[in-house]
Design a protein around this nucleic acid. Sequence first.
RNA 1: GCCCCCAUCGUCUAGCGGCCCAGGACGUGGCCCUCUCAAGGCCAAAACGAGGAUUCGAAUUCCUCUGGGGGCACCA
Length: 490
Amino acid sequence: MRVRFAPSPTGRMHLGSGRTALYNYLLARKTGGQFILRIEDTDQKRYVPTAEQELIDGMHWLGLQWDEGPDVGGPYGPYRQSERKDIYLHYARQLVESGHAYYCFCTPERLEKVRQEQQARKEQPHYDGTCRNIDPDEAARRVARGERHVIRFKTPREGVTVVRDLLRGEITVENRLIDDYVIVKSDGLALYHLAAMVDDHLMKITHVFRGAEWLPTFPLHALIIRAFGWQEPEFIHLSVFLKPSGKGKMSKREAADLMKDGYSIFVTDFKDLGYLPEAVVNWIALMGWSYDDHTEFFTMPDLIEKFSLEGLNPSPAAINFTKLDHFNGLHIRHLALPDFAQRVKPFLISAGYTVEDEKLLRIAPLIQPRLTTLDDVVAMAGFFFKDEIVPDPAALVPKGLTPAEAAQVARRSLEVLESLSDVSPAVAEPPMRALVEELGLSAGQVFGILRVAVTGQTVSPPLFESMEIIGRDTCLKRVRRAIELLEAMA
RNA sequence: GCCCCCAUCGUCUAGCGGCCCAGGACGUGGCCCUCUCAAGGCCAAAACGAGGAUUCGAAUUCCUCUGGGGGCACCA
């Protein structure tokens, strides 16, 4: 099985592209076939120089490696369409010679005028066929003379074309509704309709996964392949991703709003947002594909083993970011501790902390079950790396106590802690619980004061585990400071 | 406007004629656990778009409608 991911470098890498690439990759790996990356850059006007690199970065981040492509080469290159211009021209001329295509000399201005007239008459805009019946020899002479021209595919005027999509079965379209599409522009470069069909044939592609936006032109593509007499690959059209509301595709404006909530639709954004590639892969794999009625957690090896065409679903899916959060938490907890520590480290460093691996490794088990995204580590565990913490005095006073009472609790706690050799859970928790008992308060009240005193936060990893890492001396110093703050309030 | 595709809980989905007064997951609500927050465990509410037809029997097949999506470029 030979499959390909063929993006056009015209913008950022969308989640939908990521999924298409993923499915291609999975199928190739599952069957021991080849996964090809082909860059479809036939439109210079829309070309974005940074796009190809972003695509490559995004695929690498997701963990998708290709066997043939513009950077790694391969036996069917070049893998960038802009470098294949002559190949397409050769095949386009072959179509002209066989009567399946023709030269068209209509100017863009005339075509625009025709289009407007058709729209005014409420007709479907289409090429009016002016050049369709020019004598081939005459047309060839005009081309030889250097007259500006394009090449159009000569769609049959009658009959129907039946195509087959693996997910949807047979699709029948009347030929008269298929336009005489331009397949080679006046600059001599082929359009997608020709280029992709030629490449898929030459690159021996067996299965084409592509977006459902190609469904309307699918019959044209089949007609082109058939005009050459080539064997057709299997086609699988993946439905588009809808915005979370389920109403329509994501707009630029909405994509920007999403970023404010810590989400994105661009795969290269997820890394900095604190998402694991494992989670993003798991998430997008399940938008349009399922394995059975209960399994949802998949690693890449699982997916390679379990993925199959039968599990694909043809209906459009709304993007659900809370589900991504869920998968991210799952995959975070699935990570081995040292791996987890290394993944979280860059977020602490970019928050300005100096991070020693040994210390981070001790903190890791405390925070691993508590993170939804990796960047949460800063809010949850940043205090471990601060020399000074500044507790909010108001937060020091637990519910149900006055500042003076809280100060008294803090003083008694300090006495207990000072009497101990260390502040580890095994040593410190039993006597502290005894103190809670003695004072007739709740553990939440007493430990709450200590938590804020020692961590500066009302939410933190478990108290005694945290204190052990912070160290006895620092903890005692911080409790004394908290007592001062409380006394100042009383 | 025309063409194409799609249609099960709010969302992602299982279901491929009887196993379904429809299963799982996210989210939501409740309970348990609990030093905060999570994690974990348990429970609950929540769907076959409508109408016809075929059939002993339909979420599953077929029509029509409705709704949603996509496309109608010398873009991909």
